[in-house]
Design a protein around this nucleic acid. Sequence first.
DNA 1: GGAGCTGGTTTGAACGTTCAAAGCGCTTAT
DNA 2: ATAAGCGCTTTGAACGTTCAAACCAGCTCC
Lengths: 342, 342
Amino acid sequence: MTARRPRERGVTIEDVARAAGVSRQTISNALNAPHRLKAETLERVSAVIDKLGYRPDQSARSLKSGTRRIIAYPTPVDDPANPNPLMGGFLEAVVAASGEAGYRILLVRPRPGQSQEQALDELIAARTVDGFLLSDILRDDPRVAHLTSTGFPFAAFGRTLPDQPQSWVDVDSVQAVIDLVGLVAARGHRQVAFLASTSGQPWMDDRRDGFLAGVRRHGLAGQVYSVPGDDPGEIVTATRDRLAGRNRPTAIIAGGDWLALGVYTAARAQGLEIGRDLAVAAFDDLPITAFLQPALTTVRLPLRRIAEALIGRLLQIIEDGVTPQAGLMLPGELVIRPSLGP
Amino acid sequence: MTARRPRERGVTIEDVARAAGVSRQTISNALNAPHRLKAETLERVSAVIDKLGYRPDQSARSLKSGTRRIIAYPTPVDDPANPNPLMGGFLEAVVAASGEAGYRILLVRPRPGQSQEQALDELIAARTVDGFLLSDILRDDPRVAHLTSTGFPFAAFGRTLPDQPQSWVDVDSVQAVIDLVGLVAARGHRQVAFLASTSGQPWMDDRRDGFLAGVRRHGLAGQVYSVPGDDPGEIVTATRDRLAGRNRPTAIIAGGDWLALGVYTAARAQGLEIGRDLAVAAFDDLPITAFLQPALTTVRLPLRRIAEALIGRLLQIIEDGVTPQAGLMLPGELVIRPSLGP
DNA sequence: GGAGCTGGTTTGAACGTTCAAAGCGCTTAT
DNA sequence: ATAAGCGCTTTGAACGTTCAAACCAGCTCC
């Protein structure tokens, strides 16, 4: 039993109405439908509103109007040892995009013992939010399935299934990696390897598929090798083995910058110079790679555009009830740097 | 003019009351004060609640009770080129800690043309949140000053002024860097340098002060040099100059892992081997440094404990009206790795 | 045997807003 | 002259919950 502190109440619409000598509803209209007021009244009322610092109580407004102006973002549970370095930038972009439209982002997470779906249900039933923003979408994502059956508004960073709402936005990783392979092929490489992590990120499959499609298209000898997690040691040794073995690749495309760091380390250990003896490219454009020498060729995710598209689609569903007919596939931005060689 | 989609209403307390054959208030009590019900009634009512999937409407509850169970976190505006890599981990910890207590985190940001204080005022006046969680506290932070004068609950990651509420939590960077200097001194180093960034992070001063205190205490020759921003190129050249100049330091303590990456690069360019020719230590324990060779000695921020302490203090203010008498200074965790030398 | 207590439950009001409808003064059409 | 329409404003009700107070039956007390 915690004693709740009595909360002092602020200035209400009634106070403003009295002070301005008009009715409640006129104040409400001044804020929500200003065109209904005579210019002179609007001016006078607005002055009083400003003077008293009146803001409609969010709860009362929500209760009556049924809209919260809040979007829930179920935060992916991060491995504390290796938190997603793009999370900050993604949230940054999402907060900016939603803020512009007058919406705010609520971070949510299932409570201990609660499933993802139950956590969503709780928010829906308690009418706490207007919609959901989902990321890290699995091929057959239970959250998407659940929201689809509920009919509750959501937008997804990552593709949904064909029979689900196409309110998704994704990055065309397949094409981006095909492009990377093209760059490698153009530089004369024949033995090319792809380094994947099997720790279960859904996007890794796309990147690998892009690689396979790329080598096929360019008639190269492609090999895929992978490490089970994100452990630096494993990445380095797996790459070292690969570089020491037969069919030594002269180019490695890593499924993420994080993995590429291991490639740099392994190459150095083998006395190979990146950009001359070994071409390297990756994915994500982590800021940290600015320190790599030579600088890393990579694919940057257009986080800003992704966030804007996601919020735009979500608000369209929430406010207009219009579900997009097709998903939106955004191109990754190729950032070509010396690690590929001349 | 956006057409609002009519929102279908869910199951209300009235529905449950009718179904269970009791009054509204009994349902309310079953959820908020179960001890008031006869065991048998409670059981029966709970069953109906579960069956109908009833959840109290958050807005209605907030309107009447005056409590939102939401904490606002004004997100620091990140440089997109160099987003704070610890942000994800910090939010992770904060969401976990607040979720445990039944609170959620609302990400907020001043709208264009709006000051920080105005953004806070808007949330207070609209009664959207119960309290604020602030980070990146400046020495004389306008947000803290404003909330202090308002008397609105907040907790701060970073120290407040003596005449302000001591609801802060901070990491004892000064002591941590003194410890680092001690480790360096014990290894026989006399010429020690500190690399700072002057891009205005408030904590950098502490780290530098710790360095100065450390060299004084251990009778070392300390030199401080700094770079204006976070640009890798500048960090590397400044360090290279320093390593090539007179009074070449044999140990460098960097104000952050990010800066240490530049030290590694510069040292390599000079043909110096880290751990043998140059001792290096830093601050933050970014996961990425796991790839550095030799591994980097650094100070890890106890994000989990920080978040728990912040949320704990904030909820104490919100729920019990008790403001902490003193701030909480948490020690940084020294992570000693080979970059210091044997 | 009526007053007082106690555990359990119900009742009426209120939280602050917006919606839907009605009202009002004035102009225009019939 | 009356009705209809228009622009602006007000009125009454409702959103779904919790608070404060009232109620009620069963007991105890002297």
